[in-house]
């Protein structure tokens, strides 16, 4: 009885110590299909982008932090586009006008597939917006980013994938 108590106490302490760790990320599994029409009516399909490194970024105009990542993403595409980096947005459950305004205000240069009912994002396992996925040249998910994409993330995670 007392030994069990001691073990429970150890578990408690361990729990208290570990409570700060972040969500586990499942990496290197094939990316889910992503095909659809962007806000200007052009068709995009991730399957056709095999051979490129793709950052898939899920965003919505009603999400405040999403504004922070437009700049880093647009810049990264301009800088590394020639080396095979493609940025493909997914506009999650949004009002078309509001999304259009968002793109204009933030000056997004990358296209975004419209995911009006959210089905594509759910298929990708999106837990909240913004959330981004790094898809490697073989079409596998190499990294997942919860929250807005930053210049650091691009430098530390995306660029090595592009160069490697």
């Amino acid at each position: 009885m007392r030994r069990r108590g001691a073990r429970a106490a150890v578990a408690f302490v361990a729990v208290a110590a570990l409570s700060a760790c972040g969500p586990a990320v499942d990496v290197s599994q094939p990316a889910a299909p992503l095909a659809g029409v962007d806000m200007d009516g052009r068709h995009h399909d991730l399957a056709e982008l095999q051979g490129s490194v793709v950052v898939v970024s899920v965003w919505a105009s009603w999400c405040g932090p999403c504004r922070e990542e437009v700049q880093p993403l647009s810049q990264a595409e301009q800088e590394w586009g020639d080396d095979g980096l493609v940025v493909l947005g997914v506009n999650f459950k949004d009002h078309p006008d509001a999304a259009q305004r968002f793109v204009e205000e933030e000056g997004a240069t990358f296209p975004s597939v419209v995911d009006a009912d959210g089905a594509i994002s759910i298929d990708w396992g999106v837990t909240g917006v913004p959330q981004s996925f790094l898809v490697d040249r073989e079409g596998e998910i190499a990294a997942v980013r919860f929250g807005p994409v930053t210049d650091e993330w691009i430098a530390d995670v995306v660029v090595p994938e592009v160069q490697g």
């Binding site: 459950k93 959210g118 909240g128 917006v129």
Partner: peptide, 21 residues
């Protein structure tokens, strides 16, 4: 994306999308 809510009861957009799926 919520704390302690089921997909059925949450008003979060992700939950709404999951209900649609």
């Amino acid at each position: 994306s919520c704390v302690g809510e089921s997909v059925a009861d949450s008003s979060a957009p992700v939950a709404a999308a999951m209900r649609a799926v």
